[in-house]
Simulated assay, not measured.
Amino acid sequence: MALLEAAQSVLDREGLAAVTVRAVAREADVAPMGVYNRFGSKEGLLLALAVRALEDLWRAVSVDRSLDAEERFRRGCLAYRQFALAHPQRYALVFGGGGPLAQTGSEASVYGHAVFEVLIELVEGLLGRESLKRFASSAEAAQMVWTAIHGAVHLELGGIGQVSGSHDIYERLIDLLIRGLR
């Protein structure tokens, strides 16, 4: 656990490129062999970091089930953005191209699917039986939602939005998604 904490500290402070076996060993005050013994390789270390980030994201988007469907959806989408803004390096590790999430069958992809299942549940809460008929599946509708919110977050993190007021724009995007799903 101390090695994973050390790796996460390096990631959060210095970014993905700085996460090396030596840097993590130095942060944890252990020999580099200790990192290899625990994770096998740098790739194993990054996989463990990605799994941890996805677990945290899952907890963030798993909102209170006692709320009405629209409020649950809204809070889940807002939590997704909040996670990304609070932990941009973890978000980049998970959703960056070629990362652990892209490796089909990896432990990270299993946790990534669990996060997506929460989104499916949030979307299903909004969709009545009639609305669901407009989509091939609730997973398809959830993929559309994820594409929109991920795109908005990605633009914001990259500082490449074309207008100011990212939070207000994101809130209005959620309103648009709710109307579109219903």
Rank of each mutant, 00 (worst) to 15 (best):
M1V: 02
A2C: 01
L4M: 06
E5S: 10
A7T: 05
A7P: 05
L11V: 09
R13M: 00
A17W: 01
A17Q: 06
A17L: 05
A18P: 05
R22T: 04
A25S: 03
E27G: 02
A28F: 02
G34T: 07
Y36C: 08
N37Y: 11
F39M: 13
L46Q: 07
L46T: 02
A53N: 04
L57M: 15
W58S: 01
V61S: 08
D64Q: 11
E70L: 05
E70V: 12
F73M: 06
C77V: 08
A79N: 07
Y80C: 01
A92S: 11
V94F: 06
G98F: 11
A102G: 12
A108D: 12
V110E: 09
V110N: 03
V110P: 03
G112R: 03
G112D: 07
V115Y: 00
E117F: 01
E117I: 02
L122P: 06
V123D: 05
G125E: 10
E130W: 10
L132I: 01
F135Q: 03
A136E: 13
S138M: 09
A139W: 07
E140S: 06
A142P: 08
M144T: 12
T147E: 14
A148E: 09
L155E: 10
G158H: 15
G158P: 01
D168G: 15
Y170V: 06
R172C: 07
I174G: 03
I174Y: 07
L176S: 12
I178F: 04
R179F: 10
G180L: 13
G180I: 08
L181D: 04
R182K: 15
